[in-house]
Simulated assay, not measured.
Amino acid sequence: MSRRDLGLLLALSAIWGSSFLFIKLGVDELEPSVVVLVRVAVGALVLLPLVAGRGGLRGLRGHLVPIVALAALNNVLPFWLLAFAETRIDSGLTAVIQAAAPIFTVLLASWIDRTQRVHGARLVGVGVGFLGVVLLVGVQEGGQLVGALAVIGTALCYGGSVLYAGRTVARSLPPLQLSFGQLAVSAVLAAPFGIAQAPDELPSAGAIAAVVALGALGSGVAYLLYFTLIASAGASRAILVTYLVPAFALVYGAIFLDEEITTSALVGLALILGGTALATGARLRGR
Rank of each mutant, 00 (worst) to 15 (best):
G253I: 12
A99W: 01
L47G: 03
A198V: 11
V35K: 02
A196L: 08
L70F: 05
A41I: 10
L81G: 05
V38Y: 02
L284Q: 03
Y158P: 06
E259S: 05
Q182T: 11
K24T: 15
T94L: 04
V169F: 10
L82Y: 06
F104T: 11
A83M: 13
L225K: 02
L178Y: 06
V169P: 05
G274T: 13
E259W: 07
R283T: 14
S19G: 13
G59M: 01
A44K: 01
V211W: 00
V251D: 07
H119W: 10
F256H: 10
E259M: 03
I152H: 02
Y223C: 01
G218S: 15
L93D: 05
A231W: 07
L81C: 04
R88M: 08
R54P: 00
I97H: 09
I239F: 09
A190C: 02
R167Q: 09
A52G: 00
S264N: 13
V139Q: 11
R287E: 14
G220F: 11
A209Q: 03
G138C: 06
L189F: 03
R167K: 12
Q98E: 13
F227N: 04
A109K: 05
G59P: 00
L8F: 08
A85T: 00
A235W: 01
A11R: 00
G181K: 09
G26V: 07
G92C: 08
A170F: 06
V169E: 13
P102A: 08
L73W: 03
V118C: 03
G17L: 10
G268M: 10
L21H: 01
L57P: 02
Q98H: 08
T94G: 15
I239V: 15
S18L: 02
G138M: 11
S13V: 11
A155Q: 03
V133Y: 10
L278F: 06
V134N: 07
S91I: 07
V251H: 05
G147C: 09
P175D: 06
A238F: 12
P49A: 14
A270I: 10
A216S: 10
S179D: 12
L173Y: 07
G142H: 08
V188Y: 12
L135A: 14
G160T: 14
V124G: 02
R167T: 11
L82M: 15
T105R: 09
E201C: 03
P78I: 13
A100V: 15
L271G: 08
A109T: 10
S186T: 10
L145F: 12
I67K: 00
P32A: 01
T105M: 12
I195G: 06
Q140V: 06
G275D: 06
L21D: 11
F20K: 10
